[in-house]
Amino acid sequence: MSTGFTLFPAAKKEEYGYGVYDRVITNADLEHWFNTGDDARIPAEPKAVGFVHCVGSRDLKAGNSQCSKVCCITAIKQAMEMKEKFPDAEVYCFYMDLRLFGKKYEDFYINAQRDYGVHFIRGRVSEVSENIAGGVQVKAEDTLSGRPVRVQLDLLVLMAGIVNNPDNESIAGQVRLETDSDGFLKSRDNILSITESPRKGVFLAGACTGPKTVPETVAEARSAALAIHSYLSGLE
């Protein structure tokens, strides 16, 4: 089983205005624009760009308690890319925590600060509204200084998080598997047998069991393939 994940529908967080304001896009939209250059919402010469971390992740109210794992590093990567495209633009990242666990991720963070001058503001964006100029005004609390901050942006990127595939429930039902409390498929053991399901002969790989990075997904796919080989060869 490798049913993957879906992205959190950012429009559900109404306070961020995705689908309402022109200048609010998601991480997937921005990545699509990097690849194709095709998105009318992105202005030609933005002066200020903002990234909102944890959109729909670590959010019990949105029904997702899990950390989406990849958005921190994705936001930093995209922030640096925006800085490369628009060197004169100010880029702000609004974060709750920066979880840069992977190899070289912390180096990316330092690079973004030191070489690209990306501004990191610790505080969750509370409210986004449209301004007269057609951009958006973002309000947040700078929790490190304990003061509210306000900034006008030409583009706001929402880092929509990884959530479970909504089809998991029905697919799991067909092969008599269980979904976990977070909606992802349940492994036999979260530490020692992630790629094995509780049912013999059914194997799991990738983001169907939780948010994963690409290296993790590849490693799990290999591990699952090997486990299946062992199973079919009767080595278990």
């Binding site: 200020a48 509210p148 901050v149 306000r150 900034v151």
Partner: peptide, 22 residues
Amino acid sequence: SSAADLDKIDLSLYHRMEKVAP
């Protein structure tokens, strides 16, 4: 208001420090 308006604040000192103490 105690809010910091990031568009209006004077960052001349910060920019100067970025040069001498990056």
